[in-house]
Design a protein around this nucleic acid. Structure first.
Length: 222
DNA sequence: TGTTGATCATGC
DNA sequence: GCATGATCAACA
């Protein structure tokens, strides 16, 4: 089924729809991929399985998974009630070279402009191979969502630009939050300091709160 | 029990 | 180290 990249949006959506109802084990078998016993040491396994099936190409580049279609793919782990179990990682947060950076030029804006959400059962009570894939949802933020995302982004980025990145907490932001994004707490990257100087700090990433993705799923599926 | 801060794997 | 894919697990 997979490997080649979908040429059109319809082709992508068809492939995604064809996955709905299948278990991760069934998909893995068709792709000749081994299923890990748990995800403790394979945290991105599910997402990468979906990428492989759907023919995503972007790899680790900071661009949408399907560049020619302008579509970002996100797997969304859900519980037995269909509610997201986790926040959703979007992209790293730039910490330097921020002069003149506008919302509409940001990676967050571009990645969230069109997202193909694929719910996947994520409860740890369900063996990984038995977790089922749900109906895909192609989503574009409506005006309200976009306005809130923009406000969150602008508030966070203003603090970053002002050298206050280390004062930012994951409590901030209504839909978007800024949290550590690194292999571990010893990782350092360059950022702007309080005096406009250069400092070394933990890399941060933008995440979508699960209460936001929960709202999104409820709106479109209920 | 929900969230925040920390962590794991991989490719380049 | 940075960017991708995320989930883990301690704590409020």
């Amino acid at each position: 089924m997979p490997q080649t990249s979908p040429q059109t949006l319809d082709e992508l959506l068809d492939r995604a729809a064809a996955m709905a109802g299948l278990s991760l084990g069934e998909i893995a078998t068709q792709l000749s991929v081994e299923v890990p016993a748990d995800l403790k040491r394979h945290k991105g396994w599910g997402g990468q399985l979906l990428e492989l099936w759907l023919g995503a190409t972007a790899g680790s580049r900071p661009e949408p998974d399907f560049p020619h279609l302008g579509v970002e793919l996100k797997s969304l782990p859900i519980d037995e009630q269909g509610k997201p179990l986790e926040s959703t990682y979007i992209c790293v947060c730039p910490l330097t070279g921020l002069k003149g950076l506008r919302w509409q030029d940001s990676v967050v804006f571009h990645k969230l402009s069109r997202v193909l959400w694929i719910p996947v059962e994520g409860s740890r009570a369900i063996p990984v191979a038995e977790r089922r894939v749900g109906m895909p949802l192609l989503w574009t933020p409506d005006d309200h969502e976009m306005a809130v995302l923009r406000r969150d982004w602008e508030e966070l980025m203003e603090q970053v630009a002002l050298g206050q990145v280390e004062q930012i907490t994951a409590h901030q932001g209504e839909y978007l939050q800024l949290r550590p994004k690194a292999a571990n707490r010893r990782v350092l990257t360059e950022a702007i300091g309080p005096e406009g100087d250069k400092i070394q700090t933990l890399p941060r990433g933008f995440y979508l709160r699960s209460r936001f993705t929960a709202r999104l799923l409820a709106q479109h599926y209920l």
